[in-house]
């Protein structure tokens, strides 16, 4: 007996649903396609975890001052980002204020003390949905793409 059928019978036994409702639910369960990869029905298949953060830059001569177009292709493993944030936790607390002030000064409004190993996974999860595309306007043909893969 699978888990869903057991739950329906338990709800019937507890009086939460009537016999007719239980019959209809079981019938619906039998009509439903079998779950793939051994996952039970109702279980959400987890999305593929991104492994790399990718940065692609295509810059023109005007932007770089170099002859011809320049392309930059950087792939950073997510594992390295995780390790880097954990390593940042070694920075002494008294240095955090100075670092935050210096980052703010350069236009990065980040508070280092707020990045903790506890909320690291959440941060990485949100990075996986991140896609940044910047296209230059007019004569500037510079393109920047940041995404996870």
């Amino acid at each position: 007996m699978n888990e869903n059928r057991r739950q329906i019978l338990e709800m019937l036994a507890a009086g939460k649903i009537t016999a007719d409702e239980a019959e209809r639910l079981i019938a619906a369960l039998e009509d439903a396609p079998p779950p793939s990869n051994g996952a039970t029905a109702g279980e959400v298949k987890p999305k593929n975890k991104a492994k790399y953060l990718r940065v692609l830059v295509e810059a023109d001569e005007e932007m770089t001052g170099m002859k011809g177009p320049t392309t930059v292709n950087v792939r950073v493993p997510m594992q390295l980002l995780r390790a880097g944030v954990r390593l940042a936790s070694l920075i002494p607390a008294q240095a955090h204020d100075q670092l935050d002030a210096a980052l703010n000064k350069h236009g990065v409004p980040l508070t280092l003390s707020q990045i903790k190993p506890e909320n690291l996974e959440e941060l990485i999860d949100h990075l996986e949905d991140l896609t940044v595309e910047v296209d230059g306007k007019d004569a500037n043909a510079t393109k920047v793409r940041v995404f996870c893969e």
């Binding site: 492994k51 790399y52 770089t64 170099m66 002859k67 011809g68 177009p69 320049t70 392309t71 930059v72 292709n73 950087v74 792939r75 950073v76 493993p77 594992q79 390295l80 980002l81 995780r82 390790a83 880097g84 954990r86 390593l87 070694l90």
Partner: peptide
């Protein structure tokens, strides 16, 4: 453990910068 994490995390890193010459 932190240093080991960084060392292992380096695998897969790719940096490619290309200009005309």
């Amino acid at each position: 453990a932190l240093c080991w994490g960084v060392l292992c995390g380096l695998t897969g890193t790719h940096v490619h910068v290309n200009t005309q010459d």
